[in-house]
Design a binder for these strands. Structure first.
Lengths: 209, 209
DNA sequence: ATCGCTATATTGCCAGTGTAAACATCGATC
DNA sequence: GATCGATGTTTACACTGGCAATATAGCGAT
C-alpha cells in the first residue's frame, strides 16, 4: 500500500515517477495561481520532494518550463488539427474553425498559453519544445494553405497569408487574455460576448482574396 | 573634515530628480538586459541610490513598471498618431501606416513593448497607465473607423473591424518579437525581410470590405 | 533664526527564490 | 554480493521585493 502520493508517512526515498508528477503539479499551479507562482520550490513542495529534486530531471527552471510548454504545444497542435478535420473542406470554414480552436485553447488553458507564448524563460533550442512547436505550426499552416488559389500567388503572398491568419488569431488571443479587449466587449450590444466578437473578427478579416 | 575624496562622493543625500532618473535608468536596463533584469535593486544601483529609495516615488515594483509602461504607451500613441497623420486621407493608406508604425515601435523598443503588453506586474488601475492606454487605443481606433462605410454596419461589425485590425498588427508584433516568425521570414525569397512580410500581410488581410 | 513637519533617502532585516556542491539512498549490473 | 550511476536531500550562497526604523534635508510658520 505504499502509494507515492501525498502521504506524510512512508514516503520512499525515490519517488518512482517524479518527472511526470512534477509536470502535473506544475500545470496545476500554473493554471491555479498563474505564471508568477510557478516556481521550482512550489512545484517541489506540491510533489512532496525537496526543492532541489527537479534538477535531476530538468536541470533548470528553464528546463521544466520548456518541457511543460512542449506538452502545451502538443495539445495545442492536436486541438487545432481536430478542429480543422471536423470543419470539412471549405477553406473559409477551415480557417474559421482554426481561429475558434486557437482562441478556445487560449481561454481554456490561459496559464499554459501564457507560458507558451509569453514566457521569457523558454529554451527554444530544447528539442522536445522545438519539435512540438513545429508540429503546431504545421497544423496552423494547413489552415491557411487550404485556400484554393484563384490566381497564382507569389511565394511572398503565400507566406503572408499564413502569417496574417496566425497574427490575427494570435493577437486576438493575447489581447483577450490580457484583458485589453474588455472595453470593446462591454461596448457590444447585449447578448454579444467575446465569442461573437471573435466570430465577427474572423468574418470581417478576409485573409487572402 | 572636508571631502576626503573629491570626485566620486559628490552625491548629496537628496538626489533632486530621482523619479525621472529612475525611470530613465529603468528603460536603459529594460532595453539593454531585458525584462527579467529590470529589478528594483538594479535600477537603484544604476541611479546610485539605495535599494529602498524607489519606494518613496513608486511605492512598489508594480508602481515603477506601471509608470514606465505609461511612458511607453504615451510614446506609442504619439507614434501611431503621427504615422496616420502623415498617411493622408485614404482609409487603406491610413490602416497600413498604422500597422507599420505599430510593428515599427515594437521593433525599435522591444523591451518597452514587452513590458507594455507582456508583463504580469502592471497595475491596470494605475491612473497614468490607464490614461496612456486609453490615448493609445484612441489612436488605434481612429485607424479602423476611418474606413468609409460603403454599406451600413452593425455595431458589432464596427467593433469587430477595430478589433481585427488591432489583433492583426498586435499578433504580428508579438510573434515577431518572440522570434516565432523566423522560419517564415527565412523561407522568403532573398531580399525580402520582416518589413516586406508585414507589408504583404497588411495587403492580404483586408479588414472590412 | 529656529522650531517642527514632511518628504526623501539609508540601513538593516526578513521571507522567498534559483542554483550549485556535498552527501545519502537506492537499484541495476557485473 | 560489491560497485556504480541515477535519484533525492541537505546545506549554503547570492540574489530578489518588501517592510520598519532611522537619518537627513528642505521649508513654512512662529
Amino acid at each position: 500500500m505504499n502509494r507515492p502520493t501525498a502521504e506524510p508517512e512512508k514516503r520512499p526515498y525515490h519517488h518512482g515517477d517524479l518527472k511526470t508528477a512534477l509536470l502535473r503539479e506544475a500545470e496545476l499551479i500554473l493554471e491555479r495561481d498563474g505564471l508568477q507562482a510557478l516556481t521550482l520550490r512550489a512545484v517541489s513542495r506540491a510533489a512532496g520532494v525537496s526543492h532541489a529534486a527537479p534538477n535531476n530531471h530538468f536541470g533548470d527552471l528553464t528546463g521544466l518550463l520548456s518541457e511543460l510548454a512542449a506538452v502545451g504545444f502538443n495539445r495545442f497542435g492536436t486541438a487545432l488539427g481536430k478542429a480543422m478535420d471536423a470543419a470539412g473542406e471549405d477553406p473559409r470554414e477551415r480557417m474559421t474553425a482554426m481561429g475558434l480552436a486557437y482562441v478556445g485553447f487560449a481561454r481554456k488553458h490561459p496559464g499554459l498559453f501564457a507560458l507558451m507564448f509569453r514566457s521569457e524563460r523558454l529554451d527554444d533550442a530544447h528539442p522536445p519544445l522545438r519539435a512540438a512547436i513545429n508540429d503546431a505550426r504545421q497544423a496552423l499552416r494547413a489552415a491557411a494553405s487550404a485556400r484554393a488559389p484563384a490566381s497564382p500567388l507569389s511565394p511572398l503572398q503565400l507566406v503572408a497569408q499564413a502569417a496574417a491568419l496566425w497574427s490575427l488569431v494570435h493577437g486576438f488571443a493575447m489581447l483577450l487574455l490580457e484583458g485589453r479587449l474588455e472595453g470593446m466587449i462591454k461596448s457590444l450590444p447585449s447578448g454579444e460576448d467575446a465569442d461573437s466578437l471573435l466570430a465577427a473578427v474572423l468574418a470581417t478579416a478576409r485573409v487572402g482574396d
